[in-house]
Design a protein around this nucleic acid. Structure first.
Ligand code: ZN
Length: 673
DNA sequence: GCAAGGTC
């Protein structure tokens, strides 16, 4: 019986033993288990994920002649697989029956099949189908074993092969262009998941650099009543210019009173969040601990191998009763978060009904602690992630938090309406455990209709809008989740690949490098299929066709080869443009007509200055926004440009470049008006 | 050397 991983193999063996004992053995340092059932000896042996994958010895492209080989033969990072390979090659021969007991998905079907094909006999093989590793599920799957799932195997192999064909061929095409441009070897890559993500990063980076901020005038009143101080802001109106706001300020200095017109207060209820799936954990660990997504994932995987938490590569936000809530909480009560666990047991009186999130996973529950006590050796970061997971788990069982929000409308002597807002947490509820989401309190003195509050001070200032667009590892990961490309196990890793290739750089505010821009442009123009998530949707429908018997793997692979061949042909026809694009980015090719501001290829000229497409776009956007901007801050266009050029305005870099140049050059300045 | 998908 072949399991996908050691942990699963152990669970399967124990489930099949019915408590009558299991023999744990080991070969080359890899564990396997022997159990007796129905008079037969069952050997449950684990793989460690895929042991075989497509590979070729051919160089150059197009390349279509791959074969399935043991992964450690060609992937230096996969050395640990060789001991699994040796163990399986020793254990499998000679059995009377082979059972694929890997996870029931297309990847598991391939993993088990390839191992049975290599070391056993596919003509004496069957498939177990289970969706969880709970003992009763495993026993049911064992009792109802089916024939080998050929359609799933074919679908899974097709997925691997299509990814290989697209990825290897387009990567080699890019590298060929780089080699011709720079005369040296540069490692470049492209693929179904990484390339749409790079293109999205490029789109975001452009938006950030092209941001023309909107100006608005903020007026904040600090008022006082009975010793209590609060803030009020315009309600239902706003000052149209800085001048108007300043005159309001001087009016209020002469007549510093506000009449309370209406007091409203409402309670709002904050429901506890569900337990983590991997994406939520990565997002929260980034927000709270500042950890990049792949770091969080590695830590979670290590916590899982230490048996402190459940399987982390899950999309589920659900906690099924089968995990045994009570047993876990009882154990947690004696660990490092024992005080919180005991508090929760007291609060719930032992009635444990966790919030269930909407997201689900075919094989695993949400991430939760096992209750095992963490060892003292755990690093600070490991402990922090562990604590996050435990606290989120506890919060899921707790009660709602109650917040009371008050909103007070006040009128000044000119009849203008102002609004003050207060916020008070009435009952912390689940926030006692997961305090990272506690809203900030805004105090508000008791006020009644007709009361007079005194204006203590008035602040007037120009506020510049910030771009809402984010570009960093965590935001890219969320984008990948939202368009459903990649898997829990691969998203963060693929993002790291984009940084490793030198396409992206920087952590909190990432940037696309010149090389990344060149690759993104080439992908968009010469391999448009790889620029969007749609290719993943096409893969999915082809995989579905194979599973349902509408198409064969051969047909799907032939179609892919045809598509890729055509793209590579037209790529070679326009190789010079790709060579130039990459050459410029690597600094080995000169631009004939360079942008005055950045040296990129110019697309047109304004008042004698050659500008690239980015700076041209920045010029256009700035020209459209300038009149409004100037009138809002009650200034001349020149002063508005100075504010933009200063960066304090939060304008995008390319917009600032254009503004600064226009301040130095009259011709360009006039062209902006 | 290149993908994306498993997992130690
Ligand atoms: Zn430019």
């Amino acid at each position: 019986m072949v399991a996908e991983k050691p942990k699963a193999a152990a669970k399967i063996a124990y489930a099949l033993s019915d408590g009558r004992g299991v023999l744990r053995c080991s070969e080359y340092g890899v564990p396997y288990w022997i159990v007796r059932r129905d008079g037969a000896a069952i050997v449950v042996a684990p793989s460690a994920g895929h042991l075989f994958g497509p590979h070729t010895d051919s160089r150059g492209f197009p390349v279509f002649d791959f074969e399935w080989r043991p992964i450690f033969e060609f992937d230096r990072g996969a050395g640990y697989l060789s001991k699994f390979y040796r163990m399986l090659s020793r254990i499998l021969p000679g059995a009377s029956l082979y059972v694929n007991a890997c996870d029931y998905d297309i990847e598991g079907s391939v993993i088990g099949f390839k191992i049975i094909e290599a070391f056993g006999d596919v003509n004496r093989a069957r498939r177990m189908k289970f969706s969880t590793l709970a003992p009763q599920d495993i026993r049911r799957a064992y009792a109802r074993m089916e024939r080998l799932d050929v359609e799933m195997i074919e679908a899974g192999m097709a997925r691997s092969e299509m990814d290989w064909l697209w990825g290897i061929n387009v990567s080699r095409a890019l590298m060929e262009a780089a080699r011709r441009a720079a005369g040296r070897r540069v490692i470049l890559s492209a693929g179904r998941v990484q390339s749409p993500t790079l293109v999205e990063a490029y789109r975001r980076w452009r938006e950030i650099n092209l941001h023309v901020p909107k100006a608005s005038v903020a007026v904040k009143i600090t008022a006082e009543k009975g010793g209590g101080v609060f803030d009020a802001r315009p309600h239902g109106w706003k000052p149209q210019s800085l001048e108007t706001a300043r005159s309001i300020k001087s009016e209020l200095r002469k007549n510093p009173w506000l009449a309370v017109e209406e007091v409203r207060s409402e309670r709002s209820i904050l429901r506890p969040p569900p337990a983590f799936n991997l994406g939520d954990l990565q997002k929260e660990a980034n927000r709270i601990l500042g950890l990049p997504p792949l770091r969080t994932q590695s830590i979670a995987e290590e916590l899982y191998l230490e048996a402190l938490i459940s399987y982390p590569r899950t999309n589920s936000q659900k906690l099924p009763p089968s995990i045994n809530y009570r047993a876990i909480l009882d154990k947690l009560a004696h660990g490092p978060l024992g005080r919180e666990a005991r508090e929760l047991l007291k609060e719930t009186g032992g009635v444990l009904r966790p919030v269930q999130g909407s997201k689900d996973d075919p094989a695993h529950p949400a991430i939760h602690p096992t209750g095992e006590k963490p060892s003292q050796r755990l690093s600070k970061e490991h402990m922090a992630v562990y604590e996050l997971i435990v606290r989120r788990f506890l919060a899921a069982f707790s009660r709602e938090a109650i917040v009371s929000k008050s909103s007070v409308l006040l009128r000044d002597f000119q009849g203008r309406v102002w609004r003050a807002e207060g916020l008070r947490v009435e009952d912390l509820g689940w926030l006692k455990y997961y305090h990272y989401s506690t809203p900030g309190e805004k105090p508000m003195p008791p006020l009644d209709r007709g009361d007079k509050a005194r204006v203590v001070r008035v602040d007037v200032r120009v506020e510049w809008s910030q771009t809402p667009v984010r570009l960093d590892k965590a935001s890219l990961l969320r984008w990948m989740e939202s368009v459903n490309i990649g898997t829990e196990g691969t998203r963060a890793r693929i993002i790291e690949t984009l940084y490793k290739r030198g396409y992206l750089e920087g952590s909190r505010k990432s940037e696309v490098t010149p090389l990344g821009e060149a690759v993104a442009v080439i992908i968009q123009t010469l391999f448009p299929e790889l620029s969007k998530p749609d290719l993943t949707r096409r893969f999915e429908s082809m995989i579905e066709d194979i599973r349902s018997g509408r198409r064969t793997r051969q047909e799907v692979i032939d179609m892919s080869k045809k598509t890729i061949s055509k793209l590579l042909e037209s790529f070679l026809d326009r190789l010079d443009t790709a060579v130039r694009e990459i050459g410029v980015s690597l600094g080995s090719v000169e631009v004939e007509a360079a942008c005055h501001l950045c040296g990129r290829k110019a697309v047109s000229a304004v008042s004698g200055y050659r500008l690239c497409s980015h700076h041209m776009e920045a010029f256009d956007r700035l020209r459209k926004a300038l009149p409004n901007l100037a009138s809002t801050i009650s200034s001349t266009p020149r002063e508005a440009l100075e504010a933009i050029a200063r960066g304090r305005s939060r304008a995008g870099a390319w917009v600032r470049d254009v503004a600064a140049l226009a301040l130095r050059d009259d011709g360009l300045y006039k062209a902006l008006l």
